[in-house]
Design a protein around this nucleic acid. Structure first.
Lengths: 356, 356
DNA sequence: CTGTTAGCGCATTCAA
DNA sequence: TTGAATGCGCTAACAG
């Protein structure tokens, strides 16, 4: 207990070495130390430089970032904002998509010497305050609904890169930086494949009701391929999923029932496709014999489940890293053109679709 | 393109309102504004207070955190450190455990008005610099190996709460704050259950080779229940898993082969149990008929797979939130005693164990 | 109740 | 090549 108290007792009071103190140790001025730190060779004699460097290493010098920010109005912090209603039921973070992308963002930022602050909110003003308060160097933001994008872009005082935000019908004043994927092509590929397997009736289960974002693009892709064959896809087949698990289950149940004409269910994310497959397993409905399922993402669930799920593959990790690369270019003043990067997707055929 | 340039052009130069400017707008002194912000009622007349408050809201005032930190030597940032070799192959972030816990930490910190910075490293000095540079209010750190714990505790200048660090054989000078789970009991419950199902030969697949951490505790729990019945469990049955997927597959294969006497495989995490089950599925080995599998965590994989996996349930989200609660108590000067909190676990029986 | 002021650590002039 | 001085925005101690 003594050792414990000792350890904690003075640990808290441990002072940090400042440039001033280091300059005293080295017998030079603070400016010189600062120059050494910033590699301003030519302003410091080699012998002094080496001496100072040695001391810096010896004391494991850590710059005071607060002073840094205050001095030049810019932190090395990048904010990652999940623009969504904060909920504690964890579904947001249970989707491997979120954490794969976050993990990769963190990795890439660290490589580039930036720090990462994570925030969840669906309040624009909070985003603004977040950026301002920390003088964020840049922001990567996910899931911003269409109406809000211009407001964010116009008001935030640092570069912003969007992931998974609206990408449909971009107008001049809606221009913004974004790393997207070929959502519509993904939908198209699914639809083409389903038709080749004999399917004619499909529904699309969307994450949200908005007819503006990635989900709706995927739905339109489905329709494209159907119309090419002289078929059609009614708006009613775009079905928003409930936030309530039981209601989703009821929907899965209904879709699988023989009185529903639909033979294939396309999910906007593997997360839901997995949930459906798992639900069907438990209730004795056979996938794909009773109903075919297709997902989107190619996440770990789709690979690991039985049956494994046919899905559209996207390189989620790359998306995160790319978002960082673009952001940091902007932060460092480079031009990024075009502002929108769209990564390709491809159909990953597995075992969840039946040939009719 | 014009609109675009306009949007971005002056966005970057957007200035932030400071207390001083707000004080001018309100026709009062900066101190008064500061007093209003900090709710120092009694020092400000109601009429002035309301006026200032209105302006603050109107301009969406955001405090300059850098200046704040500089002024009182303490940020409202909590660092979350994944103490592990940074790798890009994503396995760390693919385990839902990490993200469930991270999501909950973020949630709880936000409730309490703190910010979260995430960092991955296996370098102690980097941890120290991280803490110093940002004047972190506190740190939540995961997966610190035994030898390092005292060094971290002694050198870091803020409260530290560990998750999933060593918890075996705690000595006086090894005392530290920690949110753990009843690892040994979990192992015990598994072992008891396996024996009741007729199993006598089991192996434990560990995340790492160290015989000091949670994993080894779980192994010891297995042994406890065996020894209670006059049986035994050899050290060779503690098998560290390779980092290389193919090598793990080879091990799964070997364990399932008829020449191996082992009838049950206990995995240190559902992540691996899932991998094994999925691998067996693909290679035509039947779980649980050919081999029984038990996991640990009760994550989404174990629920969703077929067969669903019998596992030890832990409340991962609660663990994260509790770590925050303890940390913030320490940050705010409250005593936390005892420093170690251990959450209970229970066996969640599903379909991956056969009765012999 | 309100205003003035010093100082936190650093970068960055400018002077020596 | 080196050092001294200023200001970034805020807090808190102090003076009015």
């Amino acid at each position: 207990m003594q050792a414990f108290d000792k350890a904690w007792g003075d640990a808290y009071s441990k002072a940090m070495l400042t440039i001033k103190e280091i300059s005293k140790m080295a017998g030079v001025s603070p400016t010189t130390v600062s120059n050494v730190i910033h590699g301003r060779t030519g302003k410091v004699s080699p012998v002094v430089r080496d001496k100072v460097k040695r001391i810096l290493k010896e004391v494991n010098y850590a710059p005071n970032m607060a002073a840094n920010i205050l001095a030049h109005e810019n932190s090395r912090i990048v904010g990652v904002v999940f623009f969504s209603e904060p909920r504690r039921d964890e579904t947001q973070f249970e989707d491997p998509f979120s954490f794969t992308i976050l993990g990769n963002i963190e990795w890439e930022l660290r490589q580039l010497g930036y720090y990462m602050m994570v925030h969840t909110t669906s309040d624009q003003n909070e985003v603004l305050r977040f950026v301002q308060s920390w003088k964020l160097a840049g922001v990567i933001i996910l899931w911003v609904p269409r109406e809000i994008i211009p407001r964010i872009s116009n008001q935030v005082s640092c570069p912003v890169v969007h992931i998974d935000s609206y990408d449909y019908d971009i107008e001049g004043d809606m221009r913004y930086y974004r790393v997207g994927i070929e959502d519509r092509s993904g939908g198209y590929q699914i639809s083409e494949y389903l038709q080749s397997m004999g399917h004619r009736q499909m529904v699309f289960l969307s994450n949200g009701p908005e007819k503006t974002g990635s989900d709706y693009m995927r739905f339109l892709g489905l329709r494209d391929a159907l119309e090419e064959q002289g078929r059609s896809l009614a708006e009613e087949n775009f079905i928003p999923l409930s936030r309530v698990k039981e209601e989703r289950y009821a929907l899965y149940e209904e879709l699988a029932s023989p009185d529903t004409s639909c033979t294939a269910v396309v999910c906007s994310a593997d997360y839901y496709a997995s949930e459906a497959v798992s639900y069907y397993q438990k209730t004795g409905i056979t996938v794909p014999d009773d109903i075919s399922i297709i997902g989107f993402d190619d996440n770990i669930f789709s690979r690991i489940l039985t049956p494994s799920i046919t899905t559209v593959h996207q390189d989620t990790g790359k998306r995160g890293r790319l978002a960082v690369d673009i952001l940091i270019k902007l932060v460092e003043g480079e031009k990024v053109d075009p502002p929108q990067v769209t990564l390709p997707v491809y159909l990953q055929i597995r075992d969840s679709v039946k040939r009719i």
